[in-house]
Design a protein around this nucleic acid. Structure first.
Lengths: 244, 244
DNA sequence: CCAAAAGTGTTGCTCGTACACCCATGA
DNA sequence: TCATGGGTGTACGAGCAACACTTTTGG
């Protein structure tokens, strides 16, 4: 790869380590970009993965977004956006990626989050939010579209080594339900017996004494996740949390 | 979990989806935080993992940092910082995490990167940069210290399912050398035969016809990585790349 | 010939996968 | 009694971990 031309030097490079001070130097009022936070919230509706979209500037669908309040932590800002715009109080939410967009003079650093909600949450009750299926295609901006696609990829990967599927389920659920979530997100069929065995082997599930009676067939036992919270968090640090 | 008190409303919450416009609303000149980019560069020196530190505001050691130039992409900014401050032109570099710090009125969004350099790079030639071992402790700010620790954790994890060790090695290396890198970073001894077999099984290595003669014992064959670049990149997208 | 690191195979176990039938229920 | 999904066990193969001795060189 070419060693990034030494020409264009918009930021002072002499300072080995001056603290960030974007208002110093040149005459411009700010060299600092805008900062916006966007959340990609998934849930499952009718066996399809759907994402929450609001309506953007000209009514075009776009990811719910906002900017952090003064000195507000990013995680808190993301949760606030989820609460105010989608109506979700507290669900799985994880930072995804940060990048900058800056073609048209609107220079913005975008911090993205992925979230998951289950059917117990009031999906559908937020005004201005529509939940749209990922297949065959989500119509939105190019950038939002790539963010959503990346979020889905990460979700898929993470399903392999965590139990975040928990967040897509109601408190009690059948094995069939659990399996269908994996099948939907991984987009491949799974063997019923192997799935059941492996999941039981983890010891994360607890069989309740209730059953699900629906349809003219044998009722299914309802399970729930054992209340050990060592799911989810894996590599993501707990920084930037809950600074009131 | 408590549903995040509805009190504190520092940012306007009425807007369902106004685009980011940090200069709107209140009378303050900017609600937008400063943005700074910090890089955590690791290498191995004498079998120890070391990190590149510059000297910060009051001469205290701190991670090399800077802020992105106007409309400069974050990845490009991180590479520029690595080049200008540490003297590394092009090495492994990956986004780590973004968080905000904002206690003292200095409100800053910090985007962190992890990088790796091998012994072929001019480590030690950059003025103002010192490479300090991670053990027993790195003396620097609390925040930088946590960033470094998280970077190390991620590096460890990633060593398991990628071949980023490649970036810590010279072009040709012995099996012992390769293994010692894994042992250093994972901080555990590995079985010589199993290690060799598994690594050979991946087909990523190529035996050269050269040997390493050092010490009064049998010379070791030198290997190199086969030039297939499907190492490293796994989940991290290629956004935000090389926008000149 | 001695020290010191390089190099090499086999075995048992664990885990994942493939696969087919009986069970309980409502209609 | 029939249709429908719920629930169960086994056998094979791949891959990983444990483990010790011979080889090649320099001094």
């Amino acid at each position: 790869m070419p060693p990034a031309a030494p020409s264009r030097r918009l930021a002072p490079s002499k300072e080995i380590d001056s603290g960030p001070d974007p208002f110093a130097g040149d005459g411009r009022s700010h060299t600092s970009p805008a900062v916006d936070v966007r959340v990609v919230f998934f849930t499952l509706v009718g066996g399809r993965l759907v994402v929450a979209l609001g309506s953007g500037e000209e009514g075009a669908p776009s990811l719910p977004r906002g900017w952090p309040a003064a000195e507000e932590s990013l995680d808190v800002a993301a949760r606030r956006i989820a609460r105010d715009q989608i109506g979700l109080t507290d669900r799985y939410l994880e930072q995804l990626y940060t990048f900058s967009v800056g073609d048209d003079g609107e220079w913005t650093v975008v911090i993205t989050y992925v979230g998951l909600v289950g059917p117990d949450a009031p999906v559908g009750s937020a005004p201005g939010i529509t939940w749209v299926p990922l297949h065959p295609r989500v119509v939105c901006s190019e950038i939002d579209s790539r963010v959503i696609e990346y979020a889905r990829t990460r979700l898929q990967a993470k399903l392999g080594y965590t139990t975040i599927a928990l967040y897509l389920l109601p408190a009690a659920f059948t094995f069939r339900h659990l399996q269908s979530i994996y099948e939907t997100i991984l987009d491949q069929p799974l063997d019923k017996r192997n799935f059941r065995r492996r999941f039981l082997a983890t010891g994360m599930l607890e069989r309740t004494d209730q059953v699900s009676r629906e349809g003219s067939h044998r009722p299914a036992a309802l399970y729930r996740f054992r209340p050990t919270d060592d799911h989810e968090r894996y590599l993501t640090p707990a920084w930037d949390e809950e600074r009131p």
